[in-house]
Structures are given as C-alpha cells and as structure tokens.
Design a protein around this nucleic acid. Structure first.
Lengths: 175, 175
DNA sequence: TCTTACAGTTCTAAAACCGAACTGTCAATT
DNA sequence: AATTGACAGTTCGGTTTTAGAACTGTAAGA
C-alpha cells in the first residue's frame, strides 16, 4: 500500500492517516495551533529540512487543511493558516498531547499546560459520547458497518479455512 | 531530528509522535482495537510487509503499548494485546476516525459506525473540558509553560532581530 | 554596494520501505 | 516416513523518502 492509496480505503482512519499520518505533518500542525504561520517560523522551530517543509505545506494546502494567504507582494510572500477543516483537527492534537502528558512525561512534569478561557482553569481533554455525554471507554464501544462500508468482507475462499481467529488451538489444557 | 530524538523533546506531542506517529503504527493500532491479536492477522488485513510489521510490533512492545503474551508453546507463539497504556490511545483513534468521518467521506457515507453500549446509540466523540464539561474550541484555549518546559525559550541573539513575527511589513497600505 | 530576511529549489548521500523468498517449529495428512 | 500447511518471523536486493547543505531570487536597510 502506498501513501496515495490510503485516501481511497474504506476506512476513515486510513483516509485521515493519508493526510496527517506522518511525523512532520503532525508537528507542522502543532506549530499552526501555536500560531506559527510562515515558512521560516516552521523551519526554525521544527528543524525540518526546507525541502520537506515546502512539500508538506503544499500537500496540506492541496488537502484543504491550510490556506495560503498573501501578506505582502513586494517579493510575493504568503502565510499558512488553518482552514475550518484544519481547525477541526484540534481534538486529535489534544488527544495526542494528553496521552503524552499521561504516559510520556519525565519527573519534571508537563511541558505545556492548557487553560480553558471559558472556565479559566487548566484542564485535560476528555472524550465523551455525543448522545449521552458519558466518557468513552474502548470496551463499551461496538463498531458496525456503515453505509460506506466495503461491498463485501470478502469470504474469498470457500475452502475450509479453520475460522477467522481465536480458538485455532488456544484451547490446549495443560502447560 | 531523527526518529529516536523525538522522545526527548520537551513536548508531549513530539514524544507521542515518536511512539505512534507513523502510518503503519497507527494502522496496526486500529487493528488492535478491532480485536486483531496475531502476526498473520495484522499482516493479512493491512498488507504491511512482514519485515516492517515485526519491527513495529517490537517497538510497540518495547514502549509498553502492547504486551506479547504466549498463547501456545508447541511452537512458541505469542499474541499482541493492548496494555492500559495502549488502551488509553483510544481517544486519539476516535478523534482521527471522527475527523475522517467529517471531512473525508465519499457520497456513500461512513464506512463504520460506533455504538455506545452505555446508551445504545450510534455516537460521535466529542472532546470536552475536564473542568467545566464544555466542548473544547481551539480559539478558547490558551497554552502556557508547565513545570517540564524547556529551560529557556532561548533569546539567542541580543542583536536587533526585528521581532518574532507579524508586523514585519504586513502594514503596507495599498495593493 | 553589501548584508539580511524570507521563501523556496536543487543535489547527493543516508535511511526507510517494498516485494518476494527463505527459515524453523509443529500438527495433520498421505 | 515424507509432505503439506499454518504461523511467526528473518534475510536480501532494489526503490522511495529523508536528511543536509548549498544555491536562487526579490527587496529592504546600512
């Protein structure tokens, strides 16, 4: 599977990964949310090579995550700002940061704190159910095919094929 | 910056990206949440090369995201299951899927729906503030350095240095 | 005129990835 | 006893991506 093919997969996650699923893109986006807008700004704060930065920015613009806006035209210069589609990536960023805050901090503690203007407090992001408002636990979610699912889960070979998984021989008695 | 160095950055996002920030790792994790546990299972559903799969699984185990558990010992065989640290990645996965559902679906609609066992309904994940429970908007969040921040934002050169950003010459009058 | 800021582009070497074949253990067949 | 198949990797040659550093071009300021 090549990078370009991800966008065509019948999976929202694969498609999203096709857009933001590489290290530099995620880091560039972080900078965007921290208000960086210009080429030099990204380059110097990330240490990304100029070549790759130019490529990634182009890709993000193509995909509608960033918009390239002129801010002067003596020598034509542009800055990159998040579109609504880009701003909507915020929950992903917060979820990533929060996991890092929980599992990857050293003894010194969190590098960055987040304050919610609405209530004035430093907060953690919590993911809840849009229907009942309860926090989501992986165990309590059941996934099922939607209208855009693949045509068939492909039974492929009608030949034996033990079964999908489990039981294969996990039922052995002694050790 | 090399892959290995990301973990040492004073940024929870960079550190997290060091763990899960590549295309295959994210896809492998998706499979984990969909209950895949074994090498062949990952390989056949993802189409990843066996070489890379072996590497990624090793890395995830090293990082404590997966645990490698023997399920038989005739020929020693193991399966990979999510640790608590791994399960905690769930909000990231959901946020990614949700963005894809919102911005990357074709006319047919979502490939997958998610049902919340607690309330029985198909839902969308919503990220809210842990303190006041309100949904988080990027505009309403202010970030500030925490205890684990970098020693100094490095003033570097005391020489002129116009200013950080903006105004540079954005104040031109006509077009 | 010389230097600096800014936004890229070009080029070579190094690292990562792909595809396909190969290794090794054991169970079930032939 | 030899063969086949499932499973979990490992090895290897060739292709892509990245890294690193230098170069291009416009315009303002000293």
């Amino acid at each position: 599977m090549k990078w370009g093919e991800l966008e065509d997969e019948p999976c929202s996650m694969a498609r999203t990964i096709g857009v933001i699923g590489d290290r530099w893109t995620l880091l560039i986006l972080r900078e965007c949310f921290l208000r960086t807008r210009r080429f030099e700004g990204f380059q110097s704060s990330l240490g990304i090579t100029r070549h790759l930065l130019a490529e990634r920015l182009k890709k993000l613009v193509r995909q509608g995550v960033l918009r390239r806006i002129p801010y002067q035209d003596s020598p034509k210069r542009h800055e990159y700002i998040l579109t609504q589609k880009g701003l909507d990536l915020y929950p992903i960023m917060m979820a990533i940061v929060h996991w890092g805050d929980t599992h990857m901090v050293d003894a010194r503690g969190r590098p960055l704190l987040h304050q919610h203007r609405k209530c004035g407090k430093d907060f953690d992001p919590v993911m809840v159910c849009s229907e009942c408002g309860e926090p989501l636990l992986a165990k309590e979610i059941h996934t099922h095919p939607g209208p855009g699912a693949r045509r068939t889960p492909a039974p492929e070979k009608p030949k034996a094929k033990r079964e999908t998984r489990a039981k294969t021989k996990a039922h052995r008695s002694a050790a």
